[in-house]
């Protein structure tokens, strides 16, 4: 991997010390057992309840549009820059393009992230781009490129969903023509339990298969969708893990419903921004 000489690099590989602290000793399996017994999640939420969201736009004064979102501990900042001509392109294209960059800050996760984008971040950038492409009226931006940067400052699960929702808000603030409001929600699946908007511990829990005998259900995984509100269209869908068709379908329903819950919040945020602008 090429080394970035412009900044002082941290160690290439680092190990979070929590791994060696035996005292926590809370394996995913045990955590799930606790959660299942209580019928509630560790922060007191129902299984299919979304965390409280704080959404604010205009967080970055230099950007054309920007938004800051908090979902529980997860904190993401998204900025959108002016449409500019597509660089390094000789032929004219009728449709505009989006450029998305999704980045975890080095300190955002338990493990230190490098400054360079790793594969996971590149994949998330791809997913984000796909989701937003269907929401933006690309034909109104011929030969232009809109740059969108998402920076996760603290990852406590569902960071990608948070980034997509916030990017939608930031795009609206930047005055980029959009078909619809875009919202995104993550759901974690383990043993048929659907955990809407999982935090990082729950995300981890949903990525593994439990070995003990009492868990016969093999379903586990993460589902992320992005939805266009009025068109009722899913503009992006991503799943990983190991999930059966029925669970997938029911998960989709839950996600769709939760997306609807977020929409008024996004609308309110946008309206508030404009009315504030008029007053001042």
């Amino acid at each position: 991997m090429p080394v970035d000489h412009k900044r002082i690099n941290g160690p290439e590989e680092s190990v979070p010390y929590e791994l060696f602290a035996r005292l926590s000793g809370l394996t995913s399996e045990k955590a799930f057992e606790q959660l299942y017994k209580a019928g509630k999640r560790s922060d007191g939420r129902e299984f299919e309840e979304h965390r409280k969201i704080f959404l604010k736009n205009g967080a970055v004064s230099q950007a054309k549009g920007s938004a800051y979102i908090e979902m529980g501990q997860t904190k993401v900042i998204v900025s959108v820059f002016d449409p500019r001509e597509i660089p390094n392109r000789s032929d004219y294209s009728l449709k505009g393009e989006l450029y998305c960059e999704f980045k975890f800050a080095p300190f955002s996760c338990a493990k230190r992230r490098l400054h360079q984008q790793d594969n996971e971040e590149k994949q998330y950038s791809c997913i984000m781009k796909k989701a937003l492409e269907s929401a933006v009226c690309l034909h109104e931006l011929p030969n232009f490129q809109v740059d969108i940067y998402a920076l996760v400052m603290h990852n406590d699960g569902s960071a990608l969903s948070a980034a997509i929702t916030a990017a939608g808000v930031a795009l609206v603030e930047a005055g980029v023509p959009m078909y619809d409001i875009i919202t995104s929600v993550t759901v974690g699946i383990q043993q048929g339990v659907k955990l809407v908007d999982p935090d990082s511990l729950e995300e981890q829990m949903c990525q593994v298969q439990f070995l003990s005998e009492k868990y016969q259900d093999n379903n586990h995984g993460l589902l992320i969708i992005s939805k266009l509100h009025t068109q009722e269209q899913l503009c992006q869908f991503y799943q990983n893990g190991y999930v059966s068709l029925e669970v997938l379908k029911s998960g989709l329903e839950v996600l769709s419903k939760t997306c609807e819950v977020i929409v008024p919040l996004v609308q309110k945020c946008l309206i508030k921004h404009i009315t504030n602008g008029i007053k001042s």
């Binding site: 992006q236 990983n240 999930v243 059966s244």
Partner: peptide, 21 residues
């Protein structure tokens, strides 16, 4: 087997939930 290990949408274009199913 009969389980889904990854599903992802590719290319531009959105789908209705019914179509997705």
């Amino acid at each position: 087997q009969e389980y889904f290990s990854t599903v992802t949408s590719i290319g531009i274009g959105s789908l209705h939930a019914q179509t997705l199913c």
